[in-house]
């Protein structure tokens, strides 16, 4: 679910941070830039793991910023394909079920990845799995187990003047998941038995 990514970057420490210890200033700088943000094709950055190497700090001409080249490792959320994880049901639509974890919201289970016999109930707005005469509900906020099938990346970097102003921004990182296999789906169904 989590990986380490090695990155080298230029850290600029502003004069008001000179009161901090250098290592703390660098750590805060890196965390402020990367934490809770998605890097395309890498994943959702959580926080700094360790600092491997730093250069001397150099003050540039014209500003009071101290420039430091730093090589460091980040903890990144990037589940691999086929990984089984826990999550909660956020909402259901005829297209499928939206899942979330506390820190990551963009997980989608398309209807073809639900087990055979699943049908959408328009009145209740949720999916129901008909299994051996029994009706099992995919209720909202229910804890589920799901398997990662695929991932989608959308670069949010501006495309220039040709870009329409009202185009809604696409989520930068989305996971497609499956709940079709045995043992996947609402945890209570499997753990209770």
């Amino acid at each position: 679910m989590f990986i380490l990514t090695k990155i080298s970057d230029l850290v600029q420490v502003a004069p008001e941070d000179f009161a901090k210890r250098s290592i703390d200033a660098i750590e805060d700088n890196i965390n402020a830039k990367y934490s809770n943000k998605v890097i395309q094709k890498i994943g959702l950055c959580i926080c700094l793991y360790d600092i491997l190497w730093t250069s001397e700090g150099l003050i540039g001409h014209g500003t009071g910023l101290v420039n430091i080249n730093v090589e460091f490792r980040l903890v990144v959320f990037r589940p691999f394909k086929g990984e089984v994880m826990l999550g909660r049901i956020r909402s259901s639509t005829p297209a499928g079920v939206n899942l979330r974890t506390d820190f990551f919201d963009d997980i989608f289970v398309p209807f073809e990845e639900l087990p055979e016999g699943a049908e959408y109930n328009h009145g209740e707005q949720l999916w129901i799995w008909n299994f051996d005469e029994e009706r099992l509900f995919y209720d909202n906020h229910e804890m589920v187990r799901f398997q990662v099938v695929d991932e989608e990346w959308h670069d949010q970097a501006p495309a220039g003047p040709s870009q329409a102003d009202d185009a809604p921004p696409k989520t930068p990182y989305r996971i497609r998941a499956s709940m079709a296999a045995e043992g996947l789906g609402v945890c209570l169904w499997w753990d209770g038995a």
């Binding site: 679910m1 989590f2 990986i3 990514t5 080298s8 094709k41 890498i42 490792r73 903890v75 990037r78």
Partner: peptide, 20 residues
């Protein structure tokens, strides 16, 4: 920013939990 190595290790939840 330069990515030196996109995946240098895999961490289990427990290791991340400990770090945090």
């Amino acid at each position: 920013m330069k990515i030196v190595e996109s995946q240098s290790a895999v961490l289990s939840n427990f290791e991340v939990y400990q770090h945090l």
